[in-house]
Write a protein that binds this DNA or RNA. Structure first.
Lengths: 248, 248
DNA sequence: CGGCTCACTTGATCTACGTCAAGGATGGAT
DNA sequence: ATCCATCCTTGACGTAGATCAAGTGAGCCG
């Protein structure tokens, strides 16, 4: 699905395709109307930077379709991805002006945006929207901290396995996924993006992907299409006996 | 200051020593009274675990004095610190039951706690408390993401310098700190704790501390008392031209 | 005072991952 | 069809930081 950049017409909040996780998940009909009034859709092409680090952000919103990343960059060019935005994930910092990192579309992407000022006012008068935001922020915080363990203490192989199991779990939508059955999905990231996520180089990512394939932990068709015959095995490889955090 | 474990009497919220950053920073007198009603103080000894990962948490609260850490541990014992709690920092997850990581007192510590259930009810009816919590959570999220860059992409020397500049900045209270003047503070962490924070081994931490000392970036009296003659220099070493994130 | 522990330092070696370099596969433009 | 640009793989080699192993020095308790 490729969409031209710019504003388009899409269903209103009352039948928003991502209501199950988004801000408006628990809104009453009249609150949805209010949200509709300040809402607009916006699409970006793969590779486009949606928000530059330091920019003033005048909206908040959710990803409807496509994938984006949050990245931080040092002056010498070293970059670290600090978040992955999949459909239904929220972007934005009510009450804050600047963005602390770049938001980049890695595929063509559709965002459902709310103008920030009116959204903040709505938040003031609608307690459960504020609570929903707090919940989502706590989820992201948990995910970020889980990822700190990955970055600080896991080996390259464990890092790759961790990333694969996160993507596999988030990509639940796809496929007959009987519990225990194989998980099949498309990696939404290049090897370089994976490396930036995991604090590795793209060569190391490539080598470890080959190793996991050689050892039968995953199967690869092409470079991006992944089959995980045994999720339990993959999670062992990730060093995760817990169900593993899901980086928001 | 050493305090026996258990409940003690301390000033009420109306003159809480940490109001400047804590939940109640913006409360009206009547709201403070309500907070007082569900509040209690609790102290822990150095080394005590305040909350075990997976435990049910029945309170939220702030650190009044002393230092605690948030750590995650893998089954094989590898551990990663995911947060540092200094005085006025908040602990707790309104709306959540379990703790996702251990909270450990690294010094004797005094906490100002609110019983969770009534606190959550208060939050429902007091919008600006909910907003304050959202703000604090966003701060922690920013700090966690800043730290992801440290863990994923910085060298051992840069990591140490990053940690030192965070502690220096948070320990602002101490000393004549004319801007540009030397910063003097006590490290609240053992070399091992620093290592767990930075994703290094204690030997590497020790070596890099010695190197920074040898190169005149810091001065050490004993093992813990640090003088930073030039904060700008330290921040350069951290690879931070920005003012550097402050890990909450 | 000696002996103990705990936190730290320093050295010698090992290794996982980074770096540099040379291809291969795919897909889109001409 | 051929050219080119991306994205990916694989090999050879170098190095930052881990690991293993001795110490040192400060507090503490008899």
């Amino acid at each position: 699905m490729t969409i031209a950049t710019g504003q388009t017409h899409l269903p209103s909040c009352t039948d928003c395709p991502i209501r199950h996780r988004a801000v408006c998940a628990r809104c009453e009909p009249d609150e949805l109307q209010t949200l509709d009034a300040i809402k607009y859709y916006r699409s970006f092409e793969a590779g486009q930077t949606i928000i530059w680090s330091g920019d003033k952000m005048d909206f908040v919103g959710s990803v409807v379709s496509g994938i984006a990343t949050l990245t931080q960059t040092m002056e010498d060019g070293r970059t670290q991805m600090v978040g992955l935005l999949l459909p239904s994930d929220f972007v934005g910092r009510p009450g804050r002006d600047g963005a602390p990192y770049d938001v980049v579309a890695t595929t063509d992407i559709m965002m459902c945006c709310f103008r920030k000022k009116p959204f903040e006012q709505l938040m003031m008068t609608t307690p459960h929207i504020a609570h929903r935001l707090l919940e989502m922020t706590l989820d992201e915080l948990d995910a970020a901290r889980e990822w700190m363990l990955v970055l600080g203490r896991k080996t390259a192989r464990e890092k790759i396995a961790s990333l694969l199991s996160i993507v596999a779990r988030r990509d639940a939508s796809l496929d007959a996924r009987r519990p225990g059955g194989p998980m099949i999905f498309d990696l939404p990231l290049t090897r370089e993006a994976m490396a930036d996520y995991l604090g590795l180089t793209l060569e190391t990512v490539s080598r470890q992907m080959s190793a996991l394939k050689r050892d039968g932990v995953i199967r690869l068709e092409g470079k991006r299409h992944v089959t995980v015959p045994d999720m339990g095995r993959l999670m062992e490889e990730a060093g995760d006996d817990s169900d593993g955090g899901c980086l928001a």
